[in-house]
Simulated assay, not measured.
Amino acid sequence: MDNSSYMYARLHNRRFTVASNSQGLSGSGTVFRYFVDGEAITSTYQGGRIRLGNQVGRVTGTHTFELLFQCITTEGELLAGWSRGEVGEDTNGRTTLHFVWGWLSGAQGGGESSYVELID
């Protein structure tokens, strides 16, 4: 299975929520939905303090990818940043995501975040 096939299987049209994000804006009410098209990855996200956000990125390895993200908050802040992600799997078979990220505009600093797949 090539890199983009693995990412498609683990991410495409799947929803994720925050497992931990101590320095970021997204929280338990934020839901991310990812789409994969070859090496390209996109997503939309909203909920909690995020009014609307989107991401665009690319596959960088078998379990890794990089993204640029932007959002507008419920307070009207316009923010943008970068992240490097790694895809995994928890003991229940759900896809997990771990990110190292930083702000590029609208805020300073960065951190690490973890997400887990939402199963209907």
Rank of each mutant, 00 (worst) to 15 (best):
G85R: 01
E66N: 05
A80S: 15
E77R: 15
V56E: 12
E39F: 11
V31T: 06
E75R: 15
F69G: 00
E77Y: 10
F32A: 07
L52F: 14
V36F: 06
S83M: 03
G29F: 11
R84L: 12
T42Q: 14
S43Y: 04
D37H: 13
S83H: 02
T60E: 07
S83V: 00
A80Q: 08
G53D: 00
L52A: 14
T60G: 10
S83A: 15
F65P: 01
R51A: 15
L78T: 12
G27F: 10
E39T: 11
L79N: 11
F32Y: 15
V31F: 03
R58W: 10
E75Q: 14
G47T: 03
L67Y: 04
F32R: 02
G38H: 05
Y45G: 02
T74Y: 08
G38T: 08
T30G: 05
F69Q: 01
V31W: 02
L68T: 13
V59K: 00
G27V: 08
T62P: 05
L68S: 15
Q70H: 15
S83P: 00
G48K: 04
L67D: 00
E86D: 05
F32I: 08
F65S: 03
T42F: 07
A40C: 08
Q46G: 10
G29H: 07
E66W: 08
T62L: 14
S43A: 15
S28K: 11
F69S: 02
V31K: 09
I41E: 02
L79V: 14
L68M: 14
A40L: 08
G76N: 15
S26N: 05
S83Q: 11
G47D: 00
S28T: 14
L52M: 10
G53E: 01
I41L: 15
R33W: 04
L79E: 04
G81T: 00
E75T: 15
Q55T: 04
S28I: 12
T64E: 13
V36D: 07
R33D: 09
G76W: 09
T73Y: 09
T62M: 12
G47Y: 06
T74W: 02
A80H: 02
E77D: 14
C71T: 09
R33H: 12
Y45M: 14
T74N: 11
G47F: 06
V56S: 13
E75M: 14
L52H: 15
I50V: 15
T64M: 11
R84C: 07
G38I: 05
L67G: 03
G76K: 12
G61E: 06
E86R: 12
T62D: 04
G48L: 01
V56W: 04
G76D: 06
G48F: 04
F65I: 02
N54D: 12
G57Y: 00
L78A: 10
Q70W: 13
I50P: 00
T73R: 09
T62N: 09
F69K: 04
R58M: 13
I50R: 04
H63A: 08
T73S: 09
T42G: 04
W82T: 07
Q70F: 11
V36A: 13
E39S: 10
G47L: 08
T30Q: 03
H63D: 15
L78R: 10
E66Y: 09
R84M: 05
G53F: 10
I72E: 14
G57I: 02
S43P: 07
G57R: 01
V31A: 03
G53A: 07
